[in-house]
């Protein structure tokens, strides 16, 4: 054989032992991190969602997540069943239904444009628009949330259903700037037609799927499902808020979490308390 001395080969047992050790250490680290951040992450997600919903439905104080399926509507669980459409029901202080919000998404000029729109069951119309995420050209595509004239389209955008409740009476359509004639048309932004069209398509797609499932079941949503949400003990947070985001929503977040501990097997006895600390910190950030 060759004259080079082969380096000593590590026995398999040692390798397995070391890898086992490393894997254990890493596993413990990950689980610790997951446990430690879970409540804060959920609270964060809730806050972000509420912010988005409150923006399109002014005056709302509480949000619940639902899914609409062919068999009816139900509170959103961890997994969304096949063919179901997620939406958010917003309630005011007194627990009355303020409006419905849902997300729509369509390919824009650069990337997918995701929007949140408010649906008013009484008017059968879209009554508000917020942008969840987009990467359109700054200065052009971002007019979809800065252009007053464009946002006027969404003060009463007609999305009523056809008489058989199976489809929209009129598909939401984006038309060339300055040629809007019907209540279901969106007047595009001059120079940002592609992005405007993405917004229209996103709303149309979402409304087309959601509304036929939602409208027959609207009665069930008329009042907030958990009346005790308001009676829960509020932690002593500083009063006041910014941008439509009030202390009430944090209260709700906390009660929501304490009433529905997320994924029981993963939530340790101390988890909630830890979560409180995180949220207190977050609340300071938000209210300051």
């Amino acid at each position: 054989m060759s004259e080079a001395v082969l380096p000593p080969v590590t026995p398999s047992g040692a390798m397995i032992r070391t890898l086992g050790l490393v894997a254990t250490v890493c596993g413990v680290l990950i689980v610790t991190a997951y446990e430690g951040t879970l409540d804060a992450v959920n609270a964060n997600k809730k806050i972000a969602l509420e912010r988005a919903v409150f923006k399109v439905i002014p005056g709302a104080a509480k949000v619940d997540e639902y899914v609409a399926t062919a068999t009816g509507i139900q509170p959103a669980g961890a997994a969304i069943p096949e063919g179901a459409v997620k939406f958010y029901a917003a309630y005011d202080q007194a627990g009355g239904l303020k409006g419905i919000a849902a997300e729509g998404a369509a390919k824009g000029y650069a990337d997918t444009v995701r929007v949140m729109y408010a649906y008013d069951p009484a008017k059968q119309a879209v009554t508000g628009l917020g942008v969840v995420s987009m990467r359109e050209t700054p200065g052009i595509g971002d007019k979809i949330y800065t252009d007053e004239a464009f946002l006027k389209n969404f003060e009463a955008l007609d999305v009523q259903l056809s008489s058989d409740m199976k489809a929209l009476a009129n598909a939401v359509k984006v038309v060339k700037h300055g040629t809007k004639q019907n209540a279901w048309e969106i007047d595009a932004i001059s120079g940002a037609t592609v992005t405007s069209k993405a917004v229209g398509r996103g709303i149309n797609e979402s409304a087309r799927k959601l509304l036929p499932l939602l409208v027959p079941n609207l009665e069930k949503l008329k009042t907030a499902p958990s009346p005790n949400a308001q009676s829960a003990v509020s932690p002593p947070f500083i009063k006041g808020g910014e941008g439509g985001f009030s202390t009430v929503s944090i209260t709700h977040t906390l009660t929501h979490l304490s009433q529905n501990p997320p994924q029981p097997p993963l939530s340790p006895p101390g988890g909630i308390e830890k979560g409180w600390r995180w949220q207190a910190h977050l609340a300071e950030e938000v209210t300051s």
């Binding site: 680290l29 991190a33 997951y34 951040t37 804060a40 964060n44 997600k45 972000a48």
Partner: peptide, 11 residues
């Protein structure tokens, strides 16, 4: 770990 931390600090 850092993925969880960032989610917890700021979405």
């Amino acid at each position: 770990v850092v993925d969880y931390l960032i989610q917890a600090i700021s979405l």
